[in-house]
Design a protein around this nucleic acid. Structure first.
Length: 518
RNA sequence: GCCAGAGUAGCUCAGUGGUAGAGCAGAGGACUCAUAAGCCUUUGGUCGCCGGUUCAAUCCCGGCCUCUGGCACCA
C-alpha cells in the first residue's frame, strides 16, 4: 500500500480561527480523503504553532502563563476540526515534548556539522514593538513610523544558519523537479526569487528578548526563532517513521511559500541530511470584494456560523467548488447561497428525494432491476456520460482540480434529472402495459444507480451527505472506491426510505434563515 | 522598478488559427414524481486598446492600458 503523508500549515495561536484556516483544513482533508479512496495509506497532520513574541505578549496581557494561553487558544483550533469533518490522524503542538526534542536534536546536529555559527547582528531596534526593523520599514523621508516609538541602532549576538551556501544546490533542485510546487506558476516565482543572492538565516533570539521558545541545545541563553521551530513540526510528528516522512506533501497558503517553505525548508532538510518532501501545494486566499479577508479589516467571516447554519458538507462543498486551488476567490454569502440552492438543494438534494419518492410510490420502496432488453438511447447515453465523467474526475482530482471535478459531477446530475423527465416514470406508473412496466423498473433502477455513482464521486467533499444518501438507498459501499465507480446492479432489491430532504432551502432573505439540519 | 497572474455575455468563468461557449441570474413554455424543485426554449458579448503576421485572429507576434499578488527573516 502506497504511503501518502499530507500536512496543513500549523496555525499561529495568537488569534482565533477564521475562514482561511478553515479552507486549508478542508482542502487538505479533501486531498486526504481522495488519496484514501485511491487506496493510499494516508497520514494527515495538522496542528498549531505556539511559540514566539506575540504569544508571549498576549499571555502577559491576559496575566496568565504562556502555556495556559496556548492551551486555551489551541483548543479553539482543535475544536474546529470535527466541526468541519476533518479526518486528521494527528494534531501537533510545538510546545509538545516530542516536537521540542526533535528540534533540539536537529539543531545540535547542524551545529556539530558547522552549519550554524554565531555572529553579531547590527540593526535598528524598536523597543516598543520589541523587534528589529528593516530598511523598508522607513517612511519615504527616512524616519521611522510613529508606531515603533523610539528606534535605536543596536548590536546583538545571534546564531545564523548557513543558508547561502546551499543556494546553487536549491536552484538545481528546482530545475530537476519542475513539478515540486503546485501550481506551476508559483514555482516560477521561487526560481525568480532565487536569482537574487540569499543571506544566511538568523535562527535565534536572546532570552532577554524572547523567553517563550525552545532553548538552543548548544547555548541555553538563546531560544530558536520561528523557522527551526515551526517548520520542523512536519518532520517531528513522524520523525520515528521515515517511510511516512519520505512521502510528505505540504498544503500551505501562498503567503508562506517564499521564502519559508520553498527556500528555508528544503535547505534545512538537505543540510540535516533528511529527505525532502514530495511537493508543496500553495493555495490562494479568500477575498471579499477583492480585499483580503482578515480580522483587522473587520470583514472576517466566522466559518463556524456558516457551518452551524448550513452544515459542514455545504460549507466544504462551496469552498472546494468555488476555489481553483492556487488562485484567489471571492467569498460572499450571496454566492454561497447560489451554489447551495442550485447545486446542492435543487440538483442533488431534489434528485435524492424524487428518486426515493418514486421508488416508494411505483415500486413499493424496493429498487427494481433494470431490464437491458428495453434499454435504448436514453439509458445508453446516461451510462456513456457517466463513463466519461468518471474517466475525467479521477485525473482531475489527482491534479487538485477538484472544482472542475465537481462541475463535471454536477453536469452528470443535471443529465440524470433530464433523463428522468424524458422517461417520465410517473406516466409509466399509470400504464398497465407490460412494456411500460418494464420501462418503469428500468427508469427507477437507472436513476438510483446514477445517484449512487454521483454520490461516490462527491464523497470526499461531502462525506456526511454521501453517507446519508447511501443509507436511504439501503446501500453500504465497499472499500474498493474505484470499483464503486462502476455502473452496475449493486442497488437491485434495496429497500429505500420514503423521503429525505437534504440541504433544505433556506428561508427567504427577509426572515432569519432557519437553522439547517443536514 | 522587477517578476507573476488576470482582463471573453449582468455575475463567475471555459475555450479554439477559420461563422463566439457553459453555469448562475433574466424571459417564455410544457409537465407534475419532487425541496414552488426538475425539464425544454430563449434574451444577451465590437472576446481590454493599437498595430503586425496570415486567405483568415479572441486565440500567434510587438506595443500600450487596467486590475491583483509577490519581491527575505513578516506565520
Amino acid at each position: 500500500m502506497k504511503s501518502f503523508y499530507i500536512t496543513t500549515a500549523i496555525d499561529y495561536v495568537n488569534g482565533s480561527p477564521h475562514l482561511g484556516h478553515a479552507y486549508e483544513k478542508v482542502l487538505t482533508d479533501v486531498i486526504a480523503r481522495f488519496r484514501r479512496q485511491m487506496g493510499d495509506k494516508v497520514h494527515f497532520l495538522t496542528g498549531v504553532d505556539e511559540h514566539g513574541q506575540k504569544v508571549q505578549a498576549s499571555a502577559k496581557k491576559k496575566g496568565i502563563p504562556p502555556q495556559q494561553f496556548c492551551d486555551e487558544v489551541s483548543q479553539e483550533f482543535r475544536a474546529l476540526l470535527p466541526k468541519l469533518n476533518i479526518t486528521n490522524d494527528d494534531f501537533i503542538r510545538t510546545t509538545e515534548a516530542r516536537h521540542k526534542a526533535v528540534v533540539r536534536a536537529v539543531l545540535q546536529q547542524l551545529f556539530d556539522k558547522g552549519e550554524i555559527y554565531k555572529a553579531e547582528y547590527r540593526g535598528f531596534y524598536s523597543t516598543r514593538q520589541e523587534q528589529f526593523l528593516q530598511e523598508k520599514d522607513r517612511l519615504p523621508d527616512g524616519s521611522w513610523p510613529e508606531i515603533f516609538g523610539e528606534v535605536t541602532e543596536i548590536v546583538e549576538s545571534n546564531y545564523f544558519f548557513k543558508l547561502k551556501q546551499y543556494q546553487a544546490w536549491l536552484v538545481e533542485f528546482y530545475e530537476k523537479n519542475p513539478d515540486f510546487i503546485f501550481p506551476a506558476f508559483r514555482q516560477k516565482q521561487v526560481v525568480e526569487f532565487l536569482k537574487e543572492p540569499l543571506n544566511d538565516l538568523c535562527i535565534s533570539r536572546p532570552r532577554e528578548r524572547l523567553e517563550w521558545g525552545i532553548p538552543l541545545p548548544f547555548d541555553e541563553g538563546y531560544v530558536t526563532y520561528v523557522w527551526f521551530d515551526a517548520l520542523l513540526n512536519y518532520y517531528s510528528a513522524v520523525a520515528d517513521r521515515p517511510e511516512i516522512w519520505r512521502e510528505a506533501r505540504h498544503v500551505i497558503g501562498k503567503d508562506i511559500l517564499v521564502p519559508p517553505h520553498a527556500v528555508y525548508w528544503p535547505i534545512m532538510l538537505h543540510a540535516a541530511g533528511l529527505p525532502l518532501p514530495r511537493g508543496i501545494i500553495a493555495h490562494g486566499w479568500w477575498l471579499q470584494r477583492g480585499a483580503k479577508m482578515s480580522k483587522s479589516t473587520g470583514n472576517a467571516l466566522n466559518p463556524l456560523d456558516l457551518v452551524a447554519e448550513f452544515g459542514a458538507d455545504a460549507f466544504r462543498y462551496f469552498l472546494i467548488r468555488e476555489m481553483n486551488v492556487g488562485q484567489d476567490s471571492d467569498f460572499t454569502r450571496e454566492q454561497f447561497l447560489v451554489r447551495y440552492n442550485s447545486e446542492l438543494a435543487n440538483n442533488l438534494g431534489n434528485l435524492v428525494n424524487r428518486t426515493l419518492n418514486m421508488t416508494t410510490r411505483f415500486a413499493a420502496g424496493t429498487l427494481p432491476a433494470a431490464d437491458a432488453t428495453v434499454e435504448d438511447d436514453l439509458e445508453k447515453n446516461l451510462r456513456a456520460l457517466w463513463a466519461k465523467t468518471r474517466d475525467e474526475i479521477v485525473p482531475l482530482c489527482e491534479g487538485y482540480q477538484f472544482h472542475t471535478a465537481l462541475e463535471r459531477t454536477m453536469v452528470f446530475l443535471t443529465e440524470t434529472n433530464a433523463y428522468i423527465e424524458k422517461r417520465a416514470p410517473w406516466k409509466l406508473g399509470k400504464s398497465a402495459e407490460l412494456r411500460d412496466q418494464v420501462l418503469l423498473r428500468t427508469a427507477l433502477a437507472t436513476m438510483a444507480e446514477a445517484l449512487r455513482l454521483a454520490v461516490a464521486a462527491l464523497q470526499h467533499v461531502t462525506p456526511a451527505a454521501a453517507e446519508k444518501i447511501n443509507a436511504v438507498l439501503g446501500y453500504a459501499p465497499g472499500n474498493d472506491w474505484r470499483g464503486e465507480l462502476e455502473w452496475g446492479t449493486r442497488l437491485n432489491g434495496r429497500k429505500v426510505e420514503a423521503a429525505l430532504v437534504l440541504f433544505p432551502r433556506p428561508a427567504p432573505p427577509e426572515k432569519a434563515p432557519a437553522p439547517a439540519k443536514s
